[in-house]
Design a protein around this nucleic acid. Structure first.
Lengths: 118, 118
DNA sequence: GCACTCTATTCGAATACGCGAATATTCTAA
DNA sequence: TTAGAATATTCGCGTATTCGAATAGAGTGC
């Protein structure tokens, strides 16, 4: 299989979209943030997030399949950790973007309110 | 409505997930990259991506609704541009992550092959 | 072996998404 | 006002995702 430049670029976009899809879930984002503090067992994660264990395992499976986290058995527990701490950077960058958006929207809302008053 | 610390954080995760969802489509990523070069008309974007106009408009609508791009009418054309160039940074960071993942997987594949041979 | 803990998977239903096709809207020019 | 170009929207279908509920492993200790 030989791909020309454009096809290669589009294939990359496709994979990148799949990666973003993994980050497109609030529970998974929270898991990534928690694992940013260090390795944690599933039970801990379930407790910290307040979600059912099955749900956490499901999301961890997604993160695992996409290679974002790594699992290691310790007795009966599974300890999960991030495979690459830059995953956190990506999360934080998108969060910054989000906060700026919210700020802008806030300004917009404010100006709208001012406009209504004027 | 008053939210405690944890609820506020989870609300932020929810919004962040929505933002990532927008980035979780190859066509939209390509549009963002193209708009990174400067403002472009819908027709140009359709041409550059090789996709039908309706599809491009649909994706632009998503980007617009989420505030990632801004549209300006010029005659009969609509010129789209990025509202914040850091959207590009976010895309590039996730792409770096992806490339490293692919590299690691390549190394893994290589070691598996070596293992098979050994 | 059995009981217990921790974790993973499967299933089904509800919801959300992406797409093509068709249609509608908006502007320009004559 | 009619034609035509550029863009937007709607609709319907196939598919993917998420969740809870239930169930299945896997490891430990007795």
């Amino acid at each position: 299989m030989h791909l020309d430049e454009q096809e290669r670029r589009r294939e990359l976009y496709r994979l990148q979209a799949m990666l973003c899809q993994v980050l497109a879930d609030p529970t998974r984002i929270e898991l990534i943030e928690l694992l940013g503090e260090g390795p944690k067992a599933v039970k801990e994660l379930a407790q910290a997030t307040g979600q059912r264990q099955a749900k956490i395992s499901q999301h961890l499976a997604v993160l695992r399949q996409r290679g974002l986290v790594h699992a290691q058995r310790v007795g009966t527990e599974m300890h999960y950790s991030l495979t690459d701490r830059r995953i956190l950077d990506a999360c934080h960058l998108t969060r910054e973007l989000l906060l700026d958006q919210l700020l802008r929207q806030g300004e917009l809302a404010e100006s709208v309110l001012l406009g209504e008053r004027g």
